[in-house]
């Protein structure tokens, strides 16, 4: 298979970068969501950012980063408030309260999209559902050295810029607040009694989740963002009992899923002789869950197989 360098740099490289960064910026907060049994906050946030993005677009008339982020963040905060209110007033479990809010918000987003014709230009429902990874183009890259040249950087696609910024921010926040996130996840009351307000950190995590969801939304769509939130963290959880190691591992799994998934979607059909490509975002989710399934079975201490073998051994000893 013959692959001109310029094609790779303009089409595949930005897509690969977007895939990896989306995985990283969702995967890191995902660790804490999984540990807090709040995985479905990732689910909820990925849905509720849609009306935020749409309204941000309608008000500003552009798909620029700032209105999009602001719209999505306000939608996320309104939703968090609603969820909390429904839980308390109705004495309803968190899952159901989230279900009410995120389906309503998503439906609102869909309706506004259809009503206003915003769907014509850059936003449409399909894009919201399974992203637009393949259409991330970095024009103006003809050679590796263009990558760092001012003209090359100038043409960096909008979605990649946004994702790069959010990923850096998320990594920075996770490292800076690692200790605070750790204690408030393990023992929120203790954290509050030490002066690290568990509620404040919780809200911070929701905001971080919403930010990651918006940034990755563009690339992989709202449903597959959930795979990025949960699968890498859940996979890493099978391999270690050390939180910082778990974060590192989840980053590795997220990166591997992004690269393998994209390559499989773009090139596997070609290798089989067909002349089309499959949906890359979907493939990344599939690869991420394959990693998770393999780990759930074969991981040494916490995999199913290892535990069954251990039990057998214990029985034999008796």
């Amino acid at each position: 298979m013959d692959l001109p360098l310029a094609d790779f740099l303009q089409i595949d490289l930005p897509a690969l970068l977007v895939a990896v960064l989306a995985g990283l910026c969702c995967g890191l907060p995902g660790n804490f969501l999984v540990l807090r049994r709040q995985s479905l906050i990732g689910d909820a946030m990925s849905h509720v950012v849609l009306p935020g993005i749409v309204v941000g677009y309608l008000l500003s008339g552009t798909l620029d980063t700032l209105p999009m982020l602001l719209g999505a963040l306000s939608a996320a905060l309104i939703s968090a408030l609603l969820i909390e209110g429904i839980k308390r007033l109705g004495k309803i479990e968190a899952g159901a309260a989230m279900g009410v809010v995120f389906t309503s918000m998503f439906a609102l987003g869909v309706l506004i999209l259809e009503q206003t014709g915003a769907s014509g230009v850059h936003l449409d429902v399909e894009h919201a559902l399974y992203g637009n990874l393949e259409s991330t183009l970095w024009l103006g890259l003809n050679d590796w050295k263009d990558l760092l040249s001012p003209t090359g950087l100038e043409q960096m696609p909008n979605s990649l810029q946004r994702l790069l910024g959010v990923s850096l921010l998320v990594i920075l926040l996770t490292v800076a607040f690692f200790k605070e996130l750790k204690i408030s996840t393990f023992d929120p009351e203790m954290a509050s009694s030490l002066g690290f307000s568990a509620r404040l950190i919780s809200i911070g995590l929701v905001v971080m989740t919403a930010l990651s969801a918006v940034a990755a939304f563009d690339a992989v769509g709202s449903i597959l963002v959930i795979a990025m939130f949960i699968c890498p963290a859940a996979t890493a959880r099978m391999w270690t009992d050390n939180l910082s190691r778990q974060l590192w591992l989840s980053a590795v799994f997220a990166t591997l899923s992004g690269i393998t998934g994209y390559l499989a979607a773009a090139f596997a059909p070609l290798l089989l002789g067909a002349d089309f490509a499959l949906n890359a975002a979907g493939m990344i989710a599939v690869v991420a869950s394959v990693f998770q399934c393999v780990s759930m079975i074969f991981a040494p201490d916490h995999g199913k197989l290892g535990r069954v073998l251990k039990q057998r051994q214990a029985l034999k000893m008796e």
Binding site: L35, A176, E180, F186, D187, L194, R237, N242, L243, R245
Partner: peptide, 28 residues
């Protein structure tokens, strides 16, 4: 009141007692 499956060792948990003294943002 806590999740005992949490990825932390006994030493990690005891270190948490020092977090108040370490303060916001400073690492262990």
């Amino acid at each position: 009141s806590v999740d005992w499956d949490f990825p932390a060792s006994a030493l990690d948990v005891v270190t948490m007692g020092l977090y108040g003294k370490i303060g916001w943002l400073r690492p262990v």
